[in-house]
Simulated assay, not measured.
Amino acid sequence: MNWQGVFPAVTTKFGADDQLDFELFDKNLQFQLEAGVDGIILGGTLGEASVLSLEEKGALVKFTVEKVAGRVPVVLNIAEGATRDAIQLAKLAEEWGAAGLMMLPPMRYKADDFETVEYFKAVANSTTLPIMIYNNPVDYKIEVTLDMFAALAECENIQAVKESTRDLTNVTRMRNRFGDRFKIMCGVDTIAMEQLVMGADGWVAGLVCAFPEETVAIYKLVKAGRYEEALSIYRWFMPLLELDIHPKLVQYIKLAESRVDLGSEAVRPPRLVLSGAERERILALIDGAIAIRPTLPDYKAIVL
C-alpha cells in the first residue's frame, strides 16, 4: 500500500427507495479516477457508515474493487464498538478484496489510552491488510497520542495516520518522533494545504467528492513546489472546504455533488435532506463558487 496522494472519502449513493444506487456511485467513482485520485475510501463518516448494514458494506467494497480494476487501492473504514466486530469486519474486508483499512478508535465507549492501543493491536494482528489510524479526537473524542503511536509501531501493518486533530504541529511532531515510520494523510479539508506544505504525504479529502480535479491539482502543485498556483486554487476552494467541518457535512457535500451532476442529495435517516433557509444558504455558497470556478493548470502532466 502506498499511502500517498489524494484518497477521496466517498459518499454512499442512495436511490429514492433508500437502496444503494450503484449507477450513480459508479458515475462519481469514474470521475474521481479520471481526475487522478490515488485511492478510494469507503464507509467513512461521509460514507454514512453508521447506517450501512454489513451486507451493504460488502456490496460496496466488491462493486468498487471490480470497477476500479486495480487502478488504485480500495480502503474500507472500520468504526465498530466491539473488538470482535472490528476483527470480523477486517477479515471480511480482505475477503471482499479491499487493499487496506482505515480504523477509528472504539465507537460509543470512550476507551482509555491502553484500551485503545489494545483495540488497534488486536485488529492489526488479525489481518495482513495495511492499516491507517483515523485520529480525530474532535469528532470521536479519543486522541491517539504520540506515545500511543509508539506502542503501535510494533504492528508492521499499522502504516499511516489520517491526521484530523486539527493541530498543524502534529505533522511535525510525528515526523520528529517517528521519521517516515508512519505515513501522514491530511484529514481535515480546511488545513490540507498547510499540512501538505509541512510534509504530509497525502490527503483524505471530503469536497473531492464534488470537486476532484481541484483537489488533485492542489495536491500535485504543492508537492511540485508550485505553491502560488496551489494557493490560488485553495483560496477559491476554502468556502467549500469549510463544509467539511460541520456536523451536516454529509448533507452539505451531497448537495455539492448534486450541483455538479456527480451525485444526489439523498441521505439515509436519521439524516434528512436539507430544506428551507439552511438549504438556500448552502446552495448559494456552492453555486457562487461554481460560478467563479478557476481554470486549472495541466496538473496531470506533473510527475512527482
Rank of each mutant, 00 (worst) to 15 (best):
A122N: 02
A111G: 09
D139V: 10
S53V: 07
L52F: 02
L46T: 12
L89A: 01
N136E: 05
T145E: 03
K67H: 12
V75W: 13
V51C: 13
V74C: 04
R108H: 11
V144K: 02
Y109M: 10
L42T: 05
A111Q: 03
A82Q: 15
I87D: 00
A69V: 05
E143L: 08
L52C: 03
I142N: 01
N135M: 06
L89I: 05
E48A: 09
K62Q: 14
P106G: 08
W96G: 01
T145K: 01
P106E: 08
E115L: 05
I133G: 08
L89W: 07
D112C: 12
A49R: 12
I40H: 10
F120Q: 05
V75Q: 04
E80M: 14
P137Q: 06
A69T: 03
A99E: 15
G47W: 01
L146P: 04
E115P: 00
V74H: 04
K57E: 08
D139M: 13
V123L: 03
F120H: 08
L42G: 05
N135F: 04
K141L: 15
T116I: 05
T145G: 02
I142K: 12
E94Q: 15
V123S: 00
E56Q: 07
R71M: 11
R108C: 00
L52E: 04
I78K: 06
N135I: 03
N125F: 11
E48Y: 03
Y134D: 09
K110Q: 10
E118A: 00
I40R: 12
K67Q: 14
G44I: 04
D112R: 13
Q88H: 15
I40W: 14
V65C: 08
Y134F: 15
T128Y: 13
E143V: 07
I142T: 10
K121A: 11
S50Y: 11
E118I: 00
A124C: 04
P73I: 08
T116W: 02
L146A: 00
V68W: 12
Y109C: 03
